[in-house]
Design a protein around this nucleic acid. Structure first.
Length: 437
RNA sequence: GCGGCUAUAGUUCAGUGGCAGAACGCCGGACUGUGGCUCCGGAUGUCGUGGGUUCGACCCCCACUAGCCGCCCCA
């Protein structure tokens, strides 16, 4: 019989790597708290409609990457459901459904959780992947349209990456204009491409027809002079979009967050308007290669029309999604995960000492120490070997110790062995002292 | 979805058409109450799965599966 394995593109996360995941998540929660965001948890699947209308029917995500299924039977049978490929649409759906607009206030929400896309897996890209994201959304009049919200979110991200210890990131910033400016630009771009498309690489010849914006992403060196000569989206923006963008820049400069205005940054989701951004790690010295072709650590932007697209009231907003898998890759390259040693390993000498040893472990653990418990069937030598692998100190509990109420404690750091009375206060003092040395 | 590379011990990897290997890790050894370093010994295994060629396949061929790299796209 063949062994059942995890399906393609998904994986198990095991200790000690999960320590790193937990550290990333608690750092993110901590930062979000300081910016007064609250956590939202939306369902892992939604009506397929939500993504079709929110993310965009023509995007790759919706047209070919979704896990869509139709449950058979009972109530609501036949309804098409989809594992969420991203979380912004779900958050905005919840915003509408719970009438959060009625508070009149800005809503600041963050989420951490798995997302699902059926893409070809490779380094830094999985079919179940984890995103840490946040959204700032609110009705007109709540200030959700203000460029200071964009800048605040970007500044928060810069702080988060810095607190996580991510080095060598670059913030790429652009404006894709409003939902009316962008189609006008695409038309101009298409027109400009027509005479020169024949000189571009094969990829771009296809893109020029299917998705002209993507031509701007081309990395083929020979194409660069031609692409540089194409019209810039900036020149298609109206004065208010330009003013918005300039205000974001001014605020970033005021707080010292470095960025690059990347005229070519276009993003794949239909709902983006005005500000779009990515934080990429492409500096060789900071470990490029760890992320492979997936050098985007996070991406996001403004989505002033999303709520209306899925049937809600006008509710401009801005948000981002961090690829947690990629943060882990970037951080793992900087420091290898290590198994954390226990503060003490209790070694019972003989099975009769198992019970009193568990009682001792309970007390030490209750007082906050990390304690491993041995097994009385082990010989002392084996207990010592095991203890040395797992803990900083060993507490020996044999017949002598039981009779005298004096435990034997040996530090692996110093090699010193002492007798300590079986007293929680004294024991914890000795073990805590050992952690210092 | 398309293209390229890869799959051997728990891990990282050698290997040859004719007995399956190294390092690390693991277990054991004097010692029925003492770890780390060293020494000695041991097991590592359906050589990814299924077919085919051959007297004989871990090796050659085909298919499948998975991983990695790239494309597309994205976090």
């Amino acid at each position: 019989m063949s062994i059942v394995k995890a399906v393609r593109g998904v994986r198990d996360l095991l200790p000690p790597e999960t320590d790193l995941w937990n550290r990333i998540e608690s750092t993110a929660r901590n930062v979000f708290e300081r910016y007064c965001f609250g956590e939202i948890r939306t369902p892992i699947f939604e009506e397929t409609q939500l993504f079709a209308r929110g993310v965009g029917e023509e995007t790759d995500i919706v047209s070919k990457e979704m896990y869509t299924f139709t449950p058979a039977g009972d109530e609501g049978g036949g309804q098409s459901l989809t594992l969420r490929p991203e979380n912004t649409a779900g958050v905005v759906r919840a915003y509408i459904e719970h009438r959060l607009a009625n508070s009149g206030q800005l809503q600041k929400l963050y989420y951490i959780g798995p997302q699902f896309r059926r893409e070809r897996p490779q380094r830094g890209r999985y079919r179940q992947f984890f995103q840490i994201g946040a959204e700032v959304i609110g009705p007109p009049g709540s200030g959700s349209e203000s460029p200071v919200r964009d800048a605040e979110v970007l500044e928060m991200l810069a702080s988060l990456l810095s607190e996580l210890g991510i080095r060598g990131w670059t913030l790429l910033l652009n404006s894709v204009g409003s939902s009316s400016e962008r189609p006008a630009y695409v038309a101009r771009l298409r027109e400009a491409l027509t005479p020169v498309a024949g000189q571009l690489c094969a990829n771009c010849q296809r893109r020029a027809v299917t998705n002209p914006l993507r031509v701007l992403d081309c990395k083929t060196p020979q194409d660069q002079p031609i692409i540089d000569g194409l019209p810039r989206i900036w020149d298609s923006l109206d004065p208010s979009s330009k003013a918005h963008f300039n205000a974001v820049r001014a605020a970033l400069e005021a707080c010292g967050v470095p960025y690059e205005h990347d005229h070519r940054l276009v993003r794949g989701l239909d709902y983006y308007t005005r500000t779009t951004f990515e934080f990429v790690q492409r500096n060789a010295a900071a470990g490029e290669g760890e992320l492979g072709a997936q050098n985007a650590l996070l991406g996001g932007g403004r989505y002033d029309g999303l709520s209306e697209a899925i049937g809600g009231p006008r509710a401009p907003g801005i948000g981002f999604a961090i690829g947690e898998d990629r943060l882990v890759l970037a951080l793992a390259a900087q420091s290898r995960a290590e198994v954390r040693l226990a503060d003490a390993y209790i070694a019972p000498l003989g099975e009769a000492l198992n019970a009193p040893s568990l009682a001792l472990a309970r007390e030490l653990r209750a007082s906050g120490l990390r304690v491993e418990l041995g097994d009385g069937s082990f010989r002392l030598k084996k207990s010592m070997e095991t203890a040395n692998k797992l803990a900083r100190a060993v507490v020996i509990l044999g017949e002598d110790e039981l009779a005298s109420a004096m435990l034997t404690v040996k530090s692996f750091a110093t090699g010193e062995q002492t007798k300590v009375s079986r007293n929680l206060r004294e024991l914890t003092a000795v073990l805590a002292g050992n952690l210092q040395s």
